[in-house]
C-alpha cells in the first residue's frame, strides 16, 4: 500500500555532533550520529535527539550530504564558503530550534531548486557569545547561485530585509590573526 513506502529525499544526509574533547584531535571529535534518505527517517531522528537549544555550550550539530565531512578541509567544502546567521544569546530556545529546523527542512527539501546542488550542508554552533548557523556551499565563485541561496535563506528564516547576512569564504577564516572576517557577499 502507498503509505508503507517512505518518501525518498533527493540526497542522503548525515547528522554530525561535535563536542570539544581536548584529549582527542579535532577531527575525531566530529561524530556521525545518523544517516538518512527519507522524510520519515529524518523525523525519526529529529524527534529522537535533543533540540538545538538543549545541547551543551561549545558543541555543534551539523547536517551534511552523505560523504561530506562538516569541515572546510573536506574536498567538497574547500573552495566554498558559508552564509552565516548569527543569533543573540536570548534566542537560545524555541527561536533557535525553529531556525535550525527550518534550515534542515531547506536542505532535505531541496528548497534552493537547481542551486541546491551547490549546497553541501549546514553547521549549528552553540557558543557562549551567541549561537550561529552556517549554510555551506561548495564553490565560492558561483556568485549567482550564492546570492539566490542567501535570498531564500533570509525569506525562509523570516529575516527582515534590513538585517544583512554575510557570506564568508572558508579560506578567509583560516587566516589566523584576522579578527574581522571579510564578507564576500551580503544579502
Amino acid at each position: 500500500p502507498r503509505d508503507v513506502i517512505k518518501h525518498p529525499l533527493q540526497n542522503s544526509w548525515t547528522l554530525w555532533y561535535f563536542e570539544n574533547d581536548r584529549a582527542k584531535n579535532w577531527e575525531d571529535n566530529q561524530v556521525e550520529i545518523y544517516n538518512f534518505d527519507t522524510v520519515e527517517d529524518f523525523w525519526a531522528l529529529v524527534n529522537h535527539i535533543k533540540p538545538a537549544s538543549e545541547i551543551r555550550v561549545g558543541t555543534d550539530y551539523s547536517l551534511f550530504k552523505k560523504g561530506v565531512r562538516p569541515m572546510w578541509e573536506d574536498p567538497a567544502n574547500k573552495n566554498g564558503g558559508r552564509w552565516l546567521v548569527s543569533l543573540e544569546k536570548k534566542q537560545r530556545g524555541p527561536e533557535l530550534n525553529n531556525c535550525w529546523l527550518e534550515v534542515m527542512l531547506c536542505l532535505i527539501g531541496e528548497a534552493f531548486d537547481e542551486f541546491s546542488d551547490d549546497v553541501c550542508g549546514a553547521v549549528m554552533n552553540i557558543r557562549p557569545k551567541g549561537d550561529k548557523i552556517g549554510i555551506w556551499t561548495g564553490d565560492g565563485t558561483r556568485t549567482n547561485s550564492i546570492m539566490e541561496i542567501g535570498q531564500r535563506i533570509k525569506s525562509r528564516l523570516n529575516i527582515p530585509a534590513k538585517v544583512l547576512i554575510g557570506y564568508q569564504l572558508h579560506r578567509d577564516l583560516t587566516v589566523k590573526n584576522s579578527s574581522v572576517i571579510k564578507n564576500r557577499h551580503q544579502v
Binding site: 518518501h7 525518498p8 522524510v39 520519515e40 524527534n47 531541496e110 531548486d113
Partner: peptide, 18 residues
C-alpha cells in the same frame, strides 16, 4: 533531470504521521 522537492508544509505535516 528531475529533483525531489518537498515544501515545508508537506514536511511539517509528515512530522507526526505514523
Amino acid at each position: 533531470g528531475t529533483r525531489i522537492v518537498y515544501d515545508r508544509s508537506f514536511l511539517l505535516q509528515m512530522r507526526n504521521s505514523p
